[in-house]
Simulated assay, not measured.
Amino acid sequence: MLTIFEEAAHAAGRVILEVYARGCAVETKPDATPVTEADIRAEDTILALLSRDLPDIPVVAEEQVAAGRVPDVSGGRFLLIDPLDGTREFISRNGEFTVNIALVENGVPVAGVVHAPALGLTYLGDATGAYKLTQDDALRPLMRQPITVRPVATPPVALASRSHQDPETAACLQQLGVAECRNIGSSLKFGLLAEGLADVYPRFGRTMEWDTAAGDAVLRAAGGMTLEIDGTPLAYGKRQRPDMADFANPAFMAWGRRES
């Protein structure tokens, strides 16, 4: 499964970098989020490869959902795709954007790939463990290494969104008494937690399941966890709730290895 995800993510990454090199127009979707040619072409690339290799698994993809195309996921096994997580980072050209592909089974992200094409790195995770793959400028693999979270430090080192800051996150960071907070774009925050470079990532602003599933899968495979504020594991496939949009996440906190 990870091999299929990796191939699709890297193919999408090449498309994204092609658009990134020459620039493109930015449009705004009905939910006020930006979308570019790179988002659309990357998603088309991923969907074509997944339909070839995994034709029987429903796919929930960000731009497909925005267009009103939502598959039946009641069987409990489906794929979540964000073809370009961190579109604002793509637009601002800081390199902190990713391709996210994840498999969900019964509400749990069990396999995922987070690929950062501009940075030449990929995070992967499934039941066998979590890994970091580094690449050269031509996206040729250089090294694959196992990764694991670290025990949460006291005081912890935190990660926060670069483009989505809010008073709730600031208050949480103050309450945690963090030693340091790094602002990073996209699902790279999950990867940094998974390789033991930070301890906690609180998120109170809105996210969608395709934003988090792949990174969450990598983090869990590395020994970490992603919890709602009440301490329950963040679940996937959330639909038909009176107070939230389909596939929207509540506030959560992603952690390295907590001792209690």
Rank of each mutant, 00 (worst) to 15 (best):
G120K: 07
P146N: 10
A251V: 08
K189M: 10
A222M: 00
V110T: 03
V73Y: 00
E96H: 03
Q135W: 08
M244D: 06
H115T: 11
R88G: 05
P30K: 04
E7A: 05
L139K: 15
D211T: 13
T98P: 05
Q174R: 10
V35M: 10
G177K: 12
E43G: 04
D82P: 03
M1Y: 15
I91A: 09
F190Y: 14
A38L: 07
A32N: 02
A118L: 15
G196M: 04
W255I: 01
E228F: 06
E180S: 12
F90A: 06
A179I: 05
A235W: 03
G23Y: 02
S51K: 01
A160M: 11
R203C: 15
L2I: 12
E228H: 07
G231K: 05
V99R: 05
P155I: 08
T45M: 00
L192M: 09
I81A: 08
M1S: 14
L234S: 06
C24G: 15
I46P: 04
S51G: 10
C172W: 13
L193P: 11
E43Q: 02
G191A: 09
S92L: 13
L133S: 09
A221V: 00
L159M: 00
P233Y: 06
G196P: 11
V108Y: 10
F5C: 08
P242V: 15
A38E: 09
I91H: 06
D53F: 10
I147D: 12
A21Y: 08
L54I: 08
I57Y: 00
V35P: 08
A245I: 11
R241N: 09
I229A: 09
A235Q: 03
G191C: 03
A21D: 06
Q145Y: 03
A130Q: 04
V70L: 14
I81V: 15
T232G: 01
I57T: 11
T134Y: 13
V152Q: 03
G185F: 01
G177W: 08
A21E: 15
A102C: 04
E6M: 13
A194K: 09
N100T: 00
F78K: 10
